[in-house]
Amino acid sequence: MKPPSGLPDFENPPAVETLLGVYFSPLKRWITPYFGSFWHTIRKEYPNVQVQPPLVSEQGLRLELSSERSTLRLSGEIPVRWFYYHRSKRRLIQIQTDCFIQNWRKRDERDSYLHYAELRPSFEHMWKRFCDFLNDSKVEAPVVQECEVTYINHIDRGKGWTNFGDVNRVVSGWSGLTSGRFLPMPSLISLNAAYPMPGKGGRLAVSLQPGIRPDGKETLQLNVSARCKPGSSRSVDVLKALDLARGWVVNGFTDFTTEQMHEVWKRTQRRGERR
């Protein structure tokens, strides 16, 4: 199923992972055992969990140091993030006291690309289950601050580029030219760009970093991430904000990359066309 959205589409896109996230004010009355209680409710589909460091420092923790007695006291909940792994090994939910994220990734190159239209209902379903759990546990409903859509793309060496002198073949805004002839070919290129989205402080962040995958393949990792504030914390507004963010990610990705690469990824819709 493909989205009838009028957005650019690719038959063979380089996306290896997509994540949809909701960031909210730290949940009041949330306590650490709830991570396990929530797992109990989804364990059939998400049989494995892992505790990870939190994404950002949380405000519920206070650290008190006393030099005279050499004491260290922690108050509040220890900040953690829980990973809930789906049995398919393609899906993950991440929860901490101020965010809820769902990731989908390709396990290998044979895995087909999952379109947003297929991911959105799954996110909606799990977000509702999480909100229902909070309600049942008498935890205050999340006050949503931002929604995020991120696409992680791997542009493998040999598929449109072979060395860092070729990055201009991938990134439309990068010429790679120098004003003189002093500099040799770069041994590393890392790019970061941020673009404002209209209204309410939304932004699109794009980063390009070369790396090595666990299978040894050299790749350019292109992360395209949009964040924006929803009209309210209601699910309908959260989903609207995710739709807006997703539109920015797809259009931003297409604009940021060259038409030459669009050929490699088999773009199916040209500029100005609408389906």
Partner: peptide, 23 residues
């Protein structure tokens, strides 16, 4: 910590000779 799940080792984390060696 980042919300990304896919594993990757960024080249900026490696000694400069590692890329040559990997190639």
């Amino acid at each position: 910590p980042a919300p990304q799940w896919s594993e990757i080792r960024l080249l900026e984390e490696f000694s400069p000779w590692v890329l040559t060696c990997l190639r």
